[in-house]
Design a protein around this nucleic acid. Structure first.
Lengths: 335, 335
DNA sequence: ATGAAAGCGCTAACAA
DNA sequence: TTGTTAGCGCTTTCAT
């Protein structure tokens, strides 16, 4: 139906051998300038395009990498993707994005799918629901380069990039304490996520530093990361039903913050809403009244670093045994 | 470094020929049930994975399609992508997403890049800045199947999916009129986008239907689609500087709405903000005070339809000359 | 029901 | 500097 021009065609037309044409097009040094010019000119005129499948097959490399995140409609992840793409494109890699929607099954299916498409490596941020990691371990054992970012796991050694979640959580909590709040709740993400534990740690350590006793009953987890609004509403209703309602909440993620706000809007009059601070990379936040203080992660940078790490793994000629676990600083934005 | 198992390996191990193994794995009918079972079992045990590059090379198809949108961190487009993926995965296609960020150069580069990776077809929503379409026309002339959605162009015949932008704009404008506003401004997207013209038309027709004279000076365009916040601020400042300030604004897009709100927050006290209604698929909107009425597009459906159309073009055995231009209904959400 | 062989398009080792 | 050849892994005639 549609037959693109090949190296062979060019060779025939210019009375050369395919290899010469190939050399000309890949800018080899062992070629006559004159010939090279002729080939390139002809190729351009006939809008020749190298067949990436043939080329990949030959090289044993697809020059594409897979990214799996919970969702792209999330400021943090979309910024991370921008970072990933900027590095990837510069190095000639293509990026295939896949969304788990924080659901275990979709993560498994999508990672399978990506692996089947022969990506050269994987950039993974874990789904909130995932507790079983065998689908990832298998791929790692088969030698597929994998780098984790943001939501990492520790089931095998590899490069990772995260932000300093503990310190970020500390800063956010401290900002609430500084504003005079004492009964501070924590709306947490799924319990088995790395970021959940780290942020909880920071939350607790801020309370401790200010001699505020930790009240376990003020911590609520969202096992689906807020994917199901009902679970957020249940947490909010729980807070509202407490004899001693929290006067402030440290929220673990952007998604949860939105869910939390809208749950409060639904369930209680404005006057009864607690103050909120939390992790978020969204820039619609300053449209909200009252504005809410947030911890911003260096998402683009994280994407860049992760991609560079992955490329290093992919292009390394020898097995890599030394791994880096980069931790980036967060930024407090007061509102 | 990492050598995956091939059909040949399986053939050797089971003392069969590669072709038999291939047949077994592709579930051919001309094969012994017994043999098939043996092969499949062995393949599973050794986690054989078909090399997609070889397979693609052989078939002349990559089974992947490219999508280009302005940005994924946009509710409308991320929903559209969900729709696209749901259909694509079901049919065994892979989706490669690319962002133009509404910039002409990035659109050109990314489309080039996608085409070079041998996608079987392209799903395009135009960037706000693009006025020259030759990069797309060239690909079309080379026979690459292309379907446009949402922001379409009319430079050659192909399938398209859009929503009924005119009627949507009418409904939004009418809702403002119904609330008693008379001096209604329109914050429009880039002038050369299809959606811009259609939404303007709806805006004007609503005014006409209510005998409100059209005031050209109440229409402002954002040539970069709001990519540059400054241009939105300039428009808002313009509205604020008018002798007769608008009491309401119909905003053409989600992105512009956000930019518009934040510009007003920055430039004028809350009491002076006009009412706002506009196109948006975001669900953080109901967190805003005052809530703003919006027109919601059937984004997921649009993605689905577009992908189905593209698959039809790709898989058609004969050149397609009959094209569909599907228009979907929008929904008014009052707040 | 199975095998042998050719070829998708490209490239790299080797030969000239 | 250029050409010849072989092969990446898979599929599909054609022959058996």
């Amino acid at each position: 139906m549609f037959k693109p021009i090949t190296i062979k065609d060019i060779a025939q037309a210019l009375d050369l051998s395919p290899s010469t044409v190939s050399r000309a097009l890949s800018d080899s040094y062992e070629i006559n300038e004159e010939t090279k010019k002729r080939v390139i000119e002809y190729a351009e005129q006939h809008s020749y395009r190298r067949n990436p499948m043939a080329s990949s097959l030959r090289h044993g490399r697809s020059y594409s990498i897979g990214v799996i995140v919970c969702e792209v409609a999330n400021s943090f992840f979309s910024q991370a993707i921008d970072g990933i793409e900027s590095v990837a494109y510069g190095k000639g890699y293509h990026v295939i994005i896949s969304q788990s929607h924080d659901a275990y099954e979709r993560e498994v299916v999508n990672i399978q799918h990506l692996a089947n498409r022969a990506v050269d490596g994987l950039l993974i941020s874990m789904s909130a629901e995932t507790k079983d990691f065998s689908h990832i371990i298998t791929l790692h054992e088969q030698g597929l380069p994998i780098v984790f970012f943001d939501r990492i796991i520790d089931v095998f050694d590899t490069h990772t990039v995260t932000s300093d979640n503990k310190k970020g959580a500390q800063k956010a909590t401290q900002s609430l304490i500084d504003r005079g709040f004492k009964k501070i709740a924590h709306l947490a993400n799924a319990p088995h996520l790395s970021i959940t534990a780290e942020r909880l740690e920071g939350f607790e350590s801020a309370l401790r530093a200010n001699n505020i006793p930790l009240n376990e009953s003020l911590i609520r987890y969202c096992h689906h990361g807020g994917r199901i609004q009902r679970e957020v509403e249940e947490a909010v209703r729980y807070f509202l039903d407490l004899d001693e309602r929290p006067d402030a909440i440290f929220v673990a993620s952007d998604r949860l913050s939105m869910g939390c706000l809208s749950a409060y809007n639904k369930l209680a009059p404005k006057a009864e809403h607690p103050a909120i601070a939390g992790f978020s990379n969204s820039d619609v936040l300053d449209l909200l009244q009252p504005g809410f203080t947030c911890i911003r992660q260096p998402a683009i940078e994280m994407g860049r670093v992760a991609m560079e790490m992955l490329i290093q793994l992919i292009e390394s000629r020898y097995p890599v045994y030394e791994f880096e676990n980069t931790v980036l600083e967060t930024e407090l934005i007061s509102r």
